[in-house]
Amino acid sequence: MTHPFLETAKAALLQRLESENFEKSVSLRIKDVGNLVIFGQGVEVSDARADCAIMADQESFEKILAGTLNPMKAALFGKLKIAGDAKTAMKFGAMFG
């Protein structure tokens, strides 16, 4: 069964992606919850590999989605960890702040 936060986050991301189009993929790895993969204008609950992986706990992702935590600041303060293509991570972060 899918964790309820994944469905909430998926809906919020789909709304933000309406005006975006990712050429590469981003994996959001939410500690103790699960993974979401963003590609183009789509989001799926998936463990698939992506060009960039962004890892954090649920609380940090909730704050990012709510607009109360800037992803770039979160990365600087160690609340987010990034692996893979940093340029793609920056494009993802730009959607939120």
Rank of each mutant, 00 (worst) to 15 (best):
M1A: 14
M1K: 09
T2I: 12
H3F: 05
P4N: 11
F5D: 08
T8K: 14
K10Q: 15
K10E: 14
L13N: 10
R16H: 09
L17C: 06
S19W: 02
F22A: 01
E23K: 09
E23V: 03
K24N: 13
S25V: 05
S25K: 12
V26T: 06
S27T: 10
S27C: 14
K31F: 05
D32Q: 12
D32G: 01
G34E: 04
G34K: 00
G34F: 01
G34I: 05
G34M: 00
N35P: 01
L36A: 06
L36H: 04
V37H: 05
I38Y: 07
V43L: 10
E44F: 06
E44I: 07
V45L: 09
V45Y: 01
S46W: 11
D47N: 15
A48Q: 15
A50C: 12
A50Q: 12
D51G: 10
I54Y: 05
I54Q: 07
D57H: 02
E62L: 02
A66Y: 02
P71F: 04
K73Y: 07
A75F: 15
A75I: 03
L76A: 13
F77A: 02
F77N: 12
K79E: 12
L80A: 03
K81S: 10
A83Q: 12
A83T: 10
G84C: 04
A86D: 03
A86H: 06
K87R: 12
A89N: 03
A89E: 00
A89C: 11
M90P: 01
K91D: 11
F92N: 00
G93T: 01
G93C: 06
G93V: 10
A94H: 09
F96A: 11
